[in-house]
Amino acid sequence: MRPTRYGDAPKRFAVIGTHNAGKTTICHGVTARLRAQGLDATYSPEPSRTSRFLASGIRNITSQLDLFVRTIANELEAGRQAAIVICDRSILEVLAYSAQMTGADGQEARLAKAMVAFAEEYVQSYDVLFRVGWRFPMADSSDPIRIGDAGFQEAIDTSTDAFASRFGCAVVPLQSPETAVMDIEREILRRLAADTAPSESSGAELM
């Protein structure tokens, strides 16, 4: 039986935090370890690496709206393929980046507010957000996708945390990049076991 939460909906876990923190490597590691145990798991990639906007140096609300939509599309498609989805980032980071680029008024601000309103409902589909507690220095400052400024990275983390708190998301902090994969695997397995364990009331009914 596929482990589910809402009927046939998949379990969705996301690794969140600013760029250049090793999230992609962690996600692949977690997915591989779950599969090795026979679990129906798959990986949902974050779309920034394939963004034509970012590759061209375009960073505005349009580029973020594109990432917002494609992040959701990737996660939904992954959920059609497997019962457990490991997400590289969440839509909260898109909101965090958008907040750094949006003015106080005008169409861009209205689009940003619309994304926030949608996200407040959509984030409830994540079972847990695993928050990386570190970031690595950018080795290549010419990378067109990533902004190498440490202050900008910190601002993204702060904004992501603020949105997670505002929406009441379940967040599990990760303490070390060396143990992150095993820590996430352990927590996912614990939650899956808790979800599939018979409740006391159901056990009493069977007696």
Rank of each mutant, 00 (worst) to 15 (best):
F136Q: 10
E200K: 12
A194Y: 04
D195V: 00
E205I: 11
A41W: 02
A164N: 08
L76G: 00
R110C: 04
R35Q: 15
S98M: 07
S44I: 08
T50L: 06
I86C: 02
I91W: 01
E46K: 05
S125H: 14
T179F: 02
I26C: 06
A21P: 02
S142A: 14
E46H: 08
P137W: 09
M101Y: 11
A78Q: 07
R35W: 09
F136W: 11
R35E: 14
A194N: 09
A197I: 03
A155E: 12
E77W: 08
H19K: 02
T42P: 03
S176Y: 13
A41F: 01
D8G: 05
A119N: 09
T102F: 00
A32L: 13
S199F: 02
L39R: 13
M138W: 00
P45F: 01
L174E: 05
L39H: 13
I184C: 05
S201A: 14
R80L: 07
K11N: 11
F163K: 08
T4A: 07
V94D: 11
A164T: 11
R59Y: 05
Y97W: 15
A9C: 07
F163L: 08
A36V: 03
F13V: 06
R135N: 09
C87Y: 02
E187C: 05
A150R: 11
A117C: 03
V94W: 01
A32K: 14
R2Y: 02
F53L: 03
T31H: 05
F167H: 03
A170G: 01
L65H: 13
Y6S: 06
M182T: 15
T196S: 12
F53Q: 10
V172W: 04
I86D: 03
A109C: 09
S125C: 10
A36L: 03
D195W: 01
S44K: 09
M101D: 08
I26L: 07
M207Q: 13
F118W: 14
F118D: 05
G103A: 12
G38N: 12
R59E: 08
Q175W: 01
P173K: 13
